[in-house]
């Protein structure tokens, strides 16, 4: 059973669709990077998964249950909303007590380990951004959730703190084999740990798959500038870039590129995601009749 699955999911705010016709199935145990530019629908998807929002159309299932009709499922979901909202007037110890008392399953040990550095009598409002994010993460891991949903957990953190937090998260879920979904518009934050990517743009899935599979099927082609036609071995050109007399293509390949005028290189996950995220789309390829494409083997 997929820990997070949607079918034809859509959410409209007034007239704007934040998410439309989204069909997904996250594999169990995956560490999912939910990528996409701002306003792509990442937060909306996570809010739908926690029942904080109701879908306008379609369905969403979390651990096989409907989060809106059956909110008890949230006992098995650890969610950190954007900005890690906590009660600012609470002390750290009180915040932990709050979560302990509002959850049937609670692991003090893991929370203690994560928070050794933080004084439990200090107020949440007085914590640094890094410590607050750490506290929010500890509260989530203390629930021993089957599904962890993090909405922009690193937005306000410096890169070092972000890396540390990510490490804590990975250690925390390593034993339980939980599925993790990390929504982030900063690709660098998620590429280090994710083994599965869901890329949203404009409220729909632009790209989905395991990292391995995505890296396998994408190649960067570099060669002299020329009019473009079909290239043997290339199924789709995702993006083209000209620099001087040089042409660089990000492509989805379906076989070996035999044309020797192309230098074929693997692509990094970050470049791949950025290419898909960029707003402008590739113009339609020019028709082959006008230009003889002799270099096509």
């Amino acid at each position: 059973m997929s820990p997070l699955a949607t079918h034809g999911l859509g959410k409209r705010f007034r007239r704007e669709w934040a998410l439309r016709d989204l069909t997904l199935e996250i594999p169990p145990g995956a560490i999912v990077g939910l990528a996409g530019p701002n306003a792509a629908g990442k937060s909306t998807l996570l809010a739908l998964a926690t029942g904080l929002l109701a879908p306008t159309e379609g369905t969403i299932s979390v651990l096989g249950r409907d989060p809106l009709r059956d909110p008890g499922v949230l006992a098995d979901v650890g969610y950190v909303a954007q900005g890690a909202p906590l009660y600012r007037s609470f002390r750290v110890a009180e915040t932990i007590e709050f979560v302990r008392r509002t959850n049937a399953r609670w692991d003090d040990e893991i929370v203690g380990e994560l928070l050794t550095r933080i004084d439990s009598s200090s107020r949440v409002a007085s914590l640094s951004e890094g410590d607050r994010a750490r506290l929010a993460l500890a509260l989530v891991l203390g629930k021993r959730p089957q599904l962890v949903l993090l909405d922009e957990p690193f937005a306000s953190l410096d890169p070092l703190a972000a890396r540390e937090l990510l490490q804590l998260l990975m250690d925390g879920v390593a034993e339980t084999g939980s599925t993790v979904v990390i929504a982030s518009h900063v690709v660098a934050d998620i590429e280090r740990v994710c083994d599965h990517i869901v890329l949203l743009t404009g409220g729909g899935v632009r790209l989905e798959g395991s990292v391995e599979e995505l890296l396998d099927t994408h190649r960067l082609l570099t060669g002299p500038r020329r009019p473009l036609g079909a290239i043997r071995g290339v199924r789709e050109v995702v993006r083209e870039r000209h620099s001087g007399r040089q042409l660089t293509l990000l492509t989805v390949v379906e076989g070996p590129i035999v044309d020797p005028s192309w230098t074929v290189e693997p692509v990094s996950l970050e470049d791949l995601l950025l290419a898909y995220m960029a707003p402008e789309r590739l113009p339609a390829p020019k028709t082959p009749e006008k230009v003889p494409l002799r270099w096509h083997g």
Partner: peptide, 15 residues
Amino acid sequence: LGTYRFAWTQGVTRR
């Protein structure tokens, strides 16, 4: 303050 996103996503249901 947005804290409902914290309070309402615990094991205790919103209701």
